[in-house]
Amino acid sequence: MTTDYDEGKFKQLLATLNQAYDTFKKKYGYINQAVNARLFDRDDRYPLIASLELEELDENDSSKVVFVKSDAFKKPTIRPKKHLHQVMSAVEALNVSLSEGRGVDLNLMSSVYPDVSEDMMISELGETVMIDVERYIDDKTVHYVTKDKFLSGDVLAKRDCINSLIEDGDTQADWERYLELILSVVPEPVVLSDIDFSIGSSWIPSNVVSQWVFSELLDEKLVCILKKLNHY
């Protein structure tokens, strides 16, 4: 089973909900009783509140309607637990983790691919997963990301992180291989000749244009005169 929320926190809130409902019911009766329904009628959330109770016939008197707690008091209804089947390979376990939106979650992967240690899973996955170098250089804890994620984002920052680890002699991973992979996606530096622009382009600050005009189109004497006039 898996969830994408804190089960302990959910159980705590569920207990609070049950207690609040029991207190209300003891004091005012069912939420869906006519008198309460009239009071709640102007609340635009009343349909949601009313759904907390289910209508049933009284076991002792079939002509009498009673209300019982809905499943909302017993278990998650919006994001219920999912039953995950065991898999036969680390790649399948990774796919399960990714499909659940958990990234490379080794705990989840171990739950569907049991009897295999995390180290064995990482070894089996090979370069399918990589150490998150930015997190590792920040706090020296190992977290994994997919190779695609590793080779995307701010690759220049990742390159610098890897170079730093190589210089420090860190042995957590084959950083030379990491550097080789990251350099394969580092873009070529953009030079001025690659930039298509024209004088007056909105993204060029006006003071830059002014400086260029002064330096390239006007002679030094005129520049001095204009600067003096601009001073006044």
Rank of each mutant, 00 (worst) to 15 (best):
A157L: 10
Q172T: 15
S164G: 08
E124R: 04
I49A: 05
Y113G: 02
L156V: 12
T141F: 08
S201T: 12
D148F: 00
Y30T: 06
S97T: 02
K82R: 14
L13Y: 14
Y136K: 02
I162V: 09
C224W: 08
L17D: 01
P205L: 05
L179H: 00
V191M: 11
E188V: 09
D105C: 07
L57D: 14
A50K: 05
G103R: 05
N163G: 06
D168C: 08
A50Y: 02
G200S: 07
K9W: 09
W203M: 09
E134G: 06
D138V: 10
G29Y: 01
D58Y: 07
I195Q: 07
V133M: 01
S206M: 11
L217H: 11
N32E: 07
L106G: 01
K221E: 15
G153F: 00
Q86C: 10
K11F: 11
T77H: 09
G29N: 04
F24D: 01
S51I: 03
V96A: 04
K149D: 12
L84P: 05
D194K: 11
F150W: 02
S206K: 14
D119E: 14
G126V: 00
S206I: 13
S215W: 10
F40S: 01
Y144R: 02
F24K: 00
T16A: 14
K64H: 15
S184I: 00
I122P: 02
E59F: 08
M121V: 03
P205M: 04
P189L: 03
E134L: 15
S215P: 06
V145S: 06
L13K: 14
D71T: 10
V112R: 00
K221G: 13
R177I: 03
N36W: 02
D119Y: 09
I122G: 03
I162Y: 00
V190Y: 08
D119A: 14
D71W: 09
P47N: 03
D219N: 15
V104Y: 00
H83G: 09
A72Q: 10
A20M: 09
S97C: 08
